Amino acid sequence: MKIYTTLQKGEYHLHHCEDYLFLDRINPHTIVCAVMDGCTMGTDSYFISTLTGKILRKIVKAKSYVDFYTPSSTSPAAQLKDIMLQLFNELNIFRNQLQLERNELLTTLLLFVADTKQGQGAILVVGDGVINVNGVITVFDQENKPDYLGYHLSEDFDTWYEKQQCIPVNALQDISLATDGITSFITLQPSSETIDPLNLLLINQGRSETDEMLNMKLKSLEHEYGMRPGDDLAVVRLIF
């Protein structure tokens, strides 16, 4: 299995990258990864996307300790729900401790749990973003009115979770999570050739001999095709 990631500030963002990504393992065969996109119209949006990633790291690390002593065969879907429950609780703790307002808690989240032993996975989508599941790309676009975790932290978790887009993955081949910055590429310099950045980054497997595949492809888009993402971009891609 090969894992590739990239995180890049968008051309339209002058100071901060408001996206963030996370990747870790509960055990050698259970992988958890996520991409977050802080709302540009929110306050210090880079903070909540980064905080969400750090909390996920804490949750997965704790799960890895428990799994070491008490191995579990919990399904990816069940793991996904439990991680989200803990994330909700932790975000509420930080919200209260730091007296964070709602507009400081606005981040999207694409969260993926994969079990290579079971050959299955599960994806949760909160807000805008793009996923690739074995060559099938799905774009989640709520027409500039995306959902954010911060809208729901005061709700009953189980009631909220039942309404969410949880996507089962029945075969692990080529899976990607990306923030909506992947659909924002702009042409800075005209080129005689055209290319689809989304296809290049999420489906094409060229240049896979290096762990920097996605970063190299972004350099190729910039220097060969004159294209850069207008919005911030975070991508996690797993090729099994």
Rank of each mutant, 00 (worst) to 15 (best):
S191D: 08
D231Y: 00
L198D: 11
I182P: 12
R102E: 14
L188F: 10
C33Q: 06
E101K: 14
L124K: 00
L221N: 02
A78W: 09
V66P: 11
L105N: 04
I167C: 00
Q118P: 04
E162R: 03
K9S: 02
L80N: 05
L214Q: 09
K9Y: 04
D115T: 08
T74N: 10
Y148A: 07
L218C: 03
C17G: 10
N215L: 00
L202I: 10
P197V: 08
Q189F: 09
E18T: 11
H15D: 15
I3E: 14
D174F: 02
M227P: 07
Y46M: 12
Y46P: 11
H29L: 08
Q173S: 14
D141T: 12
L111R: 07
F185C: 06
L218M: 12
G53F: 09
P168N: 03
V35C: 12
I195L: 06
L201S: 07
Y46E: 15
D158H: 01
M216V: 09
N103K: 11
Q189Y: 10
D232F: 09
M41A: 15
D232Y: 04
A234D: 06
L238H: 07
S72Q: 07
D82K: 10
D211T: 03
C39Y: 11
G119V: 11
L124C: 01
L7H: 13
P28C: 01
D67F: 08
E11F: 03
D158A: 13
S72K: 03
A234R: 06
Y12H: 14
Q97L: 13
H13Y: 00
L221A: 01
I195S: 04
S75R: 13
T138D: 12
T6Y: 00
D156V: 06
Q120R: 05
